[in-house]
């Protein structure tokens, strides 16, 4: 297949097929960004060297960090606390600090209070103090998420099992919980109460309000055979279809994957702890052991930038190598 552009809707030199093709290498952990459809490949280090020149007129910049798995100490990464620290160092080295962080779940490996304590202690070193959380299944293992809600969701006045929304610079952010009350044989699940809340939450918003949804398990069918999807996400996304710009940020799968569907961009972030195999390439989705020198190239974080007037948010994935 040749590299010609068949449909250049945004007159930016990239069509959908070309974009998806680029995603193939994005999935291997190489750095990339999309800004209004323009693909750029840059590392945070490069941005720092260039004096923070990407993109110039940013109205809001925030950072997604995910799957810290504090407490994990198996072969795939014997020191996840250290790699989490490295991730925070990268954030602290950014020429323009992000407005806030979003942590998309799995703070800990086993929901142990001491694991949460270690995370909080290390997080103190981050210059950016504002952090928004949604739980991963590893954070709610034995108590239905009670401890997690008390510690991370009190300040946002979360509803139900921990969902909430807030506004920043005209962007409406929605944090959802899809790791509780899971049913045998099923996938991630939002549940009727949360769906009802979501419908009401966005009802009064104008269609031109940019929406950012974040949750742990992907809200799209990445690979249901491995449980990488959410059974009732279609209904949730249905409430968001009328909006001109919807960005869905997830964790859980420890690798960068992206899908664009109409006005919706779905994106998953790397972990700061250990990589997981690409869908279907291993017997199971468990922690993937890679050569030591390769590990940090497969861990990372995502920087998200909103520029008013642009239809899509710019997402820059950068690894820790």
């Amino acid at each position: 297949m040749s590299d010609y552009i068949s449909h250049d809707h945004e007159h930016d030199g990239v069509d959908r097929r070309g974009f998806l093709k680029c995603m193939a290498w994005a999935g291997t952990g190489v750095l990339w960004t999309i800004s209004g459809g323009v693909l750029v490949s840059k590392t945070l280090a490069q941005i720092a060297k260039a004096g923070g020149s990407l993109p110039t007129a940013t109205d809001l910049s925030f950072l997604q960090i995910s799957d810290s798995h504090i407490g994990f100490s198996k072969d795939a990464n014997k020191d996840v606390t250290e790699t989490f620290k490295v991730a925070l160092d990268r954030i602290n080295a950014m020429p323009t600090p992000p407005s806030f962080l979003i942590h998309t779940g799995d703070i800990t490996q086993l929901s142990k209070p001491e694991e949460f304590d270690t995370f909080d202690e290390v997080l103190k070193s981050c210059r950016t103090k504002d952090v928004f959380f949604v739980p991963g299944e590893h954070d709610v293992l034995n108590d239905g998420g009670k401890f997690y809600r008390e510690r991370y969701l009190k300040s946002v006045e979360a509803k139900g099992s921990g969902w909430y929304s807030f506004n920043k610079n005209g962007v409406h952010f929605i944090g959802l919980v899809n790791v509780l009350n899971l049913q045998a044989g099923g996938l991630g699940q939002l549940g009727d109460d949360q769906l009802e809340w979501l419908e009401a939450d966005v009802k009064g918003l104008g269609a031109d309000t940019p929406i950012v949804v974040f949750a742990h398990i992907p809200l799209w069918a990445v690979y249901p055979q491995w449980g990488w999807g959410t059974s009732d996400s279609e209904q949730a996304l249905g409430y968001l279809k009328r909006f001109g710009s919807v960005t869905v940020l997830n964790g859980h799968i420890h690798q960068v994957l992206q899908k664009v569907e109409g006005n919706m961009t779905f994106h998953t972030a790397m972990s700061t702890a250990f990589p997981q195999p690409a869908p279907g390439t291993a017997p199971s989705p468990g922690p993937m052991k890679v050569p030591a020198e390769k590990l940090r190239s497969m861990l990372g974080l995502a920087n998200v930038q909103y520029i008013q007037g642009k239809t899509s948010l710019a997402i820059i994935d950068s690894n820790l190598s």
Binding site: E137, L182, A184, G185
Partner: peptide, 12 residues
């Protein structure tokens, strides 16, 4: 008796 893993409900 059927059972599953509540962390990974695909496991039954």
């Amino acid at each position: 008796y059927t059972y599953f893993c509540s962390v990974h409900p695909k496991m039954t």
